[in-house]
């Protein structure tokens, strides 16, 4: 039987998602034996031409060239899996979507005139159809393995829905928000990480993005009213890694300073 051809592609990103894949140390050999890793620059310089059975996409679409590449990759991939906050929601670099075009570039680069980038950083799904998306910054390597396994065995992948709280409770972690007053985005954040942050005694910062029907307004009212979080901090909580995810974006806008002159300059 012909091996399944797998390709891994990088767009605007930090490489963390690819590292999650490489971090599957115990399974990596078996993966390499089972599938034909046809394109994975971070792992091997042996490159094969498409078409590919599975393409894993890391990173957001942030340059005109990115749009050309993702369109071409979509055409030669049967199954397109977007992984990580950048590919799924536009990533932390989508913070620039909240500024005037070129505002960050002026601050960061000495010669912004050499850059060719889009005004907004956007998710893969804004440009081509994705077949499945795995959230997280970084994504959970177990979930990536689960999707690969499911593809190879024609099985429905087991990916939890609902809030991080459900995973938190099943792990028996005592809620950090209720027992310590630490603000936590777990109740509005999509499950999948296994409640990593509460397990280490800190609040979830929402890296898996909004869960199904997230009630961000109610949580904001609680963390500001009861837990005393400042308006600016509530804004920052939602305008963070998944700042361009619809529900988090809308919530963050609600906490913008009322008077536009109060708006902080990007530093």
């Amino acid at each position: 039987m012909k091996k399944t051809k797998l390709a891994v592609w990088k767009f605007s990103s930090c490489d963390g998602c690819q590292l999650s894949l490489l971090d599957l140390e115990d399974e990596l050999l078996e993966i390499a034996e089972t599938v034909d890793i046809s394109y994975f620059l971070e792992a091997s310089s042996r490159l094969k031409r498409g078409p590919y059975d599975i393409s894993i996409i890391e990173g957001s679409i942030s340059t005109p060239h990115d749009i050309e590449r993702i369109t071409a990759i979509r055409e030669k991939s049967k199954f397109l899996l977007a992984v990580g906050s950048c590919a799924v929601f536009g990533g932390v670099q989508a913070l620039r979507n909240y500024t005037l075009p070129g505002e960050y570039q002026q601050v960061v680069y000495e010669h912004p005139e050499y850059l060719s980038s889009l005004d907004a950083s956007s998710p893969v799904s804004a440009h081509v159809k994705t077949d499945l998306e795995l959230r997280g910054c970084p994504p959970n390597k177990r979930q990536i393995l689960e999707v690969l396994t499911a593809c190879l065995n024609a099985k429905k992948p087991d990916l939890p829905s609902g809030s991080v709280c459900l995973e938190c409770k099943r792990k028996g972690i005592v809620c950090v928000m209720v027992s310590k007053g630490i603000p936590c985005l777990g109740p509005v954040t999509h499950a999948g990480c296994g409640a990593l942050c509460p397990a280490h005694d800190r609040g979830c910062y929402g890296c898996f993005g909004p869960k199904e029907t997230p009630n961000t307004a109610s949580l904001s009212a609680w963390i500001s009213g009861k837990l005393g979080m400042s308006r600016e901090d509530v804004l920052q909580s939602f305008r963070h890694i998944n700042c361009y995810a619809l529900e988090f974006c809308l919530e963050s806008i609600k906490h913008e300073p009322k008077d536009s002159s109060e708006r902080p300059e990007p530093d």
């Binding site: 609902g162 809030s163 709280c165 459900l166 777990g186 109740p187 029907t213 009630n215 109610s218």
Partner: peptide, 8 residues
């Protein structure tokens, strides 16, 4: 309006 449907 208050419920987060978090399931806790």
């Amino acid at each position: 309006r208050r419920c987060l449907t978090c399931g806790n």
